[in-house]
Amino acid sequence: MTSRAIRTTFQIVLLLFLLLFVYMLDFRLGVLRLLFPAQRELIYQRVTLPTLVIQHMRMVAISSAGATVVGLFIGVAVTRPAGRDFLPLARDLSSFAQTFPPAAVLALAFPVLGFGFQPTVAALFVFGLLPVINNTISGIESVDSRIVEASVGQGMTQRQVLFRTELPLSARVIVAGIRTSVIINIGTATIGSTIGAGGLGTVIIAGLVRNNTAFVLTGAITAAGIAFVVDWVFGRIETLFYDPRERVTT
């Protein structure tokens, strides 16, 4: 088997495991019983796991979609001639913000936005913005200036240069930024449960409070599994775009 085939097999097995773990109660019970024979309460009863997954992914989807749109916009804006003055500022801000712990963002957001879903999405949005901005800037900056000049020289307008040359050539790097953003958010969204946002953090926190490792692991395994699968999907999406390192031999 080639390394590629091994990876694909692993991914399929992982996806199957995740689906069974979330949607087949008996399967999950079996796995947890194997891991924690002494634990009497293995299944979190107050909310079903599929519901938690949906809550979780809703937060991630909304915050990441917003981060992608706004991040792309900012990244493109500061690489335009008119916005170039703000480029160092955007770089600094996004580097600075990435050093912020997500819990601190939550703590700052909830006095303004209250408890629950909204402040969590806001925190995830801010946090997910940074890799998108960074990668959009790096991606566009890495396009060979001679190729841009060639495009201008053929008679493209600024907008055409952006959409026909700069974005297609940097798409792979930009998608990698979105990928990072989404993966970070899948993990970070678990802390939203501390302020009542629901999601997979709910079962983890319940486990921590009640000293029930099976609950903690239920949330952690599911979040990690989703992160794996989403990462794999993004990996596939990236290959659709132009790869600057590509060396085709025919």
């Binding site: 190729i147 000049e149 060639a150 201008v152 008679g155 493209m156 307008t157 026909r164 050539l169």
Partner: peptide
């Protein structure tokens, strides 16, 4: 207008000028 002018003038530069995608 620059774009109109440029579309009426062929422009050849070293091979890097082809759009790689």
């Amino acid at each position: 207008p620059p774009q109109i002018l440029r579309r009426g003038i062929g422009y050849v530069i070293q091979s890097v000028g082809l759009l790689p995608h």
